[in-house]
Each structure stands twice: as structure tokens, then as C-alpha cells.
Design a protein around this nucleic acid. Structure first.
Lengths: 253, 253
DNA sequence: GAAATTTATTAGACTGATCTAAAAATGAGG
DNA sequence: CCTCATTTTTAGATCAGTCTAATAAATTTC
């Protein structure tokens, strides 16, 4: 008998973190090499080599020495489960406990390993089965299905009118800054020029404020949706004027 | 340079568990001996000996070989902090996420080590600063102050009228049973006889149902408050009408 | 395509929390 | 006060996750 194990494999939170990182790297269409994984987790390369071998043995990923790791079906299932927990928790912290979007990541990072499935299903229901977290990232559903997201990275966008879809960077400082200048999911903005190789990119958030200048790196973590109306227009959108105002519950301090 | 350390000592969740257990034992007015701590934590005695020495070195408790441990001021502060988190979390799970009182303990046991102070203060406010958890146990306040509780243990109570104050036993089976027979904090009940050495004690919960019989051990985890009206009376208590139709003596079947 | 550079793996060690088995204190009874 | 049972500690190991330093494979560069 060899094809026995089915469900229930309970893993340490360390293992969950490794799987999460490999998934994240694969999602960015990069190779999950030892050093890349090590950078994400902030551990030594040697530690990762070791761990990847263990995870391979556990059947959670494929591992080719000098190449890197690839999640197996089971490994991906677990990774997506954690991703779901993480994002659902972020949403919960934001909506129910009033956390700012720059505060949710760190807390969710700890809770995702500690809460039970019951907890997750209760907050899912309490939040009415949300499909996105406070940063605009999609929350996988309970079966592990994920929406396909082919968003446009601001760093590659042509001049035009857009709205912010998601921000993939959890640095609190950075998020707090975006918040301050009025850039959050659903914010409308117009872009005058294509992102330069170096130097800041000029944005005009609809919020009417002054232009915002962002470095290339910053732009890489902002994803947008094109809007079908030209940059400097007056009244047009039928779904409400200065909407954006709610969400992003204050707190801070 | 010697009297430096003040706050901030961050400890592992294992250490938190040891402190919690020592506090619990001290609260029961027992000696926190190696083996008693070991039994509570379900680890080997040798492990405890080791750990107690480390905790002593860390200044969290006194430790006398062959005698046991006593929390220091700092150790007690930490232990009470965890107790507060635990009970506040239980209340939160019960009130906000709809957990049954037999489900809250296990989840809180994991969360108490994972949530931040911000999380705790948010749920505290959300629950409107509760003073008791779902089992009727007092929640220490944010400064670490604890209400003095001198409750009467059902195992020692004289016949009379009481109401349930708290239940100190987190076994889900047991709690689910109490729930089924209608015994929970604030339930009124009358006691016909004093707890026997062996055999079940007969209780009459006000909820009108049949008498309930509880073993001595079970009675030890139930604490009650005397009510000021005698068993077989008619009208008297100003805090409720036809309270206790205390008659019902024995009979019923 | 050989040398230089980068990336990855091996080797050896450490830390924290745990265990088992053996030795040593403690404390009760005679 | 001596012996026996109980409780506690010591000794020696294990396991997971991590590190550093040394070595080896892969890749890039000239």
C-alpha cells in the first residue's frame, strides 16, 4: 500500500510560509529558485535548500537541485488555502475591527496560521463572502478556485484613464502614503505619460488633488483597469460622483 | 548597568503556556510543583524542571528545586495578560462569530498567542468592555486588575436557591451537556441536598425541566451565587416574580 | 571554451522544546 | 533512624528550523 494519504496532512506554519512564497513566485511567473525563496522569507539560502528537499519528500512540491521548486497539486491546494485565509482575515480586520489597509497584512500574517476552518467560514459569512481584500486582491473561494486576474501594471500602462484595481505591496509606510495622496482600490486616475525608465511617473488621481509622482518600483505594485473615457473629462461616469470615500476605514495613529 | 530591562520582553507561546498554568495552579491555591505543571501541560516532568529553571533565569518566576514555582511580579503580569486575551477572545468568538460556549476555548487557546495588542483592544471595544467570558469567568482589565471572586463551589453548597456564576471546565463534551440540560451562567437552580461523597447530586434548574444529576467532579467546576429566597417559598424576591416555584420537592418523575 | 562570477549545496553547529531512562531527594511508616 | 514509595532532577537524545563557512555546480564573460 502506498497511495494512502489523502487529506488532513497538518503542517507547521513554517511549511505554510514556504508554500505561500513559492505560490507567490509562481504567480509572478518566475522560477522559484532557492535564493528567490530565501529572499522572500528572509532566511539563509542553505535553509531553503534543506526545506525544499523536505517539502519534496512530503509531496508538496517538485524540487530539482540547482533549479528550484514547483508546487504539486497538493502543495498548491495548501498554498491557496493559506492565501484565502490571509486575504479573508485582512478583510475582516479592515471591515470589522477597523484596521487601516496598511495594518492588516502583518496581523493576518500571524493569524492565518492560527485560526481554525470554523473561524474562517464564520468571518466569510459575516463579510458576506467577499471576493477581494482591502488591497483589491482576489480572495480564492472555499473550494480553492481563484479568479483569473490579468490586470495591467501601472509601470507598463499607456497614457489614459484608469482606475486602481489592486496594490501588491504590503509595506505599511508605502500604503499609508498612497492613502494620504488618495490612491486606493477603485480610485480613478489619469496618466499623462508612459512610465519612464527612471524617475517619477506623474499621476492625476481623480480625487481632485495635486498630481502624484511615483517611482518605477512603486508603479510595479499598482495594477489598474482601463476606463473607457478620455483623460481630462468633466462629468461622465454613471456610477456616482466622488464615490470613493468609504472603505479604507481611517484608524491609523 | 544591571537594572535595565523594563517592558517589551517578548516570549514564546510555550513560555506563555507555562506561565498561564502556574497562574492557574496558584489561583487554585495549590503548590505549582513540577508534576502538577506537567500534568496540566501534558508534557514530561523532566521537561518542566528544565523550563522552570529557564523561566527563573528569565525572572518570570521563583523556582525552588523539589518544591516548585511561584510567579514573580513580572511573570504574573504576563500570565494575567494572557488570561485576559484568552477570555476576551472567547467572548468575541461567542458574541461576534456565534461560537458555542463549548467551542470557544480551543480556538482562543491558539489565538491568544497570535493576536496583537491592537486586535485585543479593538475587540474589547467592540464588545463594550465585557467583564466576563462565556463561562462566567472574570476578564482582567487592560491594566491587569482582576475582580476578586469568592464564589461558592457547588460541591460545597448547602441546600438552597442559587444561580450559576461560572463553570471552570472547558471540556466541550461536558459543556455541551450542561447546555443541553439548561445549565449555564445565570441559570437559577435549587439544591435539595448537600453534595455527597460519591454519587450524583440532584439539581433543579429553573428552566423547569426535569432534575439534573451531576457527579462530584462535575460539581467541583460549577460555582454558584446564593439567592436570597428560601427554597419552598411563595412571593418574596423583589428581583423577579414567581421565581423558583421551589416546591417540586423531590417528586416529579 | 576556459576563467570569473554567481548561485546552490554540503558540512557542521546551535537553539528551543521535547522525550526516556537512570539517579537522587523527599517524606512516611515502622 | 532506616527503608520504601513517590517525586524530582540529571543525563543523554531527538527533532525542527535555523545559521555560517566551505565547496561545488551553473552561468556569464572575454
Amino acid at each position: 500500500m502506498a497511495a494512502e494519504s489523502q487529506r488532513k496532512a497538518t503542517v507547521s506554519s513554517t511549511v505554510e510560509d514556504y508554500l505561500k512564497v513559492v505560490l507567490k513566485i509562481e504567480d509572478m511567473k518566475q522560477r522559484a529558485s532557492t535564493s528567490r525563496v530565501a529572499r522572500h522569507l528572509e532566511v539563509a539560502d542553505a535553509t531553503v535548500t534543506d526545506m525544499l528537499r523536505k517539502l519534496k519528500k512530503a509531496g508538496l512540491l517538485e524540487y530539482k537541485p540547482y533549479y528550484g521548486a514547483t508546487l504539486t497539486r497538493e502543495g498548491r491546494r495548501m498554498a491557496v488555502r493559506i492565501l484565502r485565509r490571509h486575504r479573508l482575515l485582512e478583510m475582516f480586520l479592515h471591515q470589522v475591527l477597523g484596521y487601516g489597509w496598511e495594518q492588516v497584512h502583518q496581523e493576518a500574517e500571524r493569524l492565518e496560521h492560527a485560526v481554525s476552518d470554523l473561524f474562517i467560514s464564520r468571518i466569510d459569512a459575516l463579510l458576506d463572502f467577499p471576493s477581494q481584500d482591502p488591497h483589491g486582491e482576489a480572495i480564492p473561494d472555499a473550494r480553492g478556485f481563484r479568479q483569473v486576474e490579468d490586470d495591467l501594471c501601472l509601470a507598463e500602462a499607456e497614457p489614459g484613464s484608469y482606475s486602481v484595481r489592486k496594490v501588491t505591496n504590503s509595506d505599511p509606510e508605502f500604503l499609508a502614503y498612497l492613502d494620504r495622496v488618495g490612491l486606493r482600490p477603485a480610485t480613478r486616475l489619469s496618466l499623462q505619460e508612459k512610465a519612464p525608465f527612471q524617475g517619477p511617473l506623474k499621476l492625476l488621481p481623480e480625487s481632485g488633488r495635486e498630481p502624484v509622482y511615483l517611482g518605477l518600483e512603486a508603479c510595479r505594485s499598482i495594477f489598474v483597469l482601463p476606463r473607457k473615457d478620455r483623460p481630462p473629462a468633466s462629468a461622465s461616469a454613471p456610477d456616482g460622483p466622488a464615490s470613493r470615500e468609504a472603505g479604507t476605514r481611517g484608524s491609523r495613529k
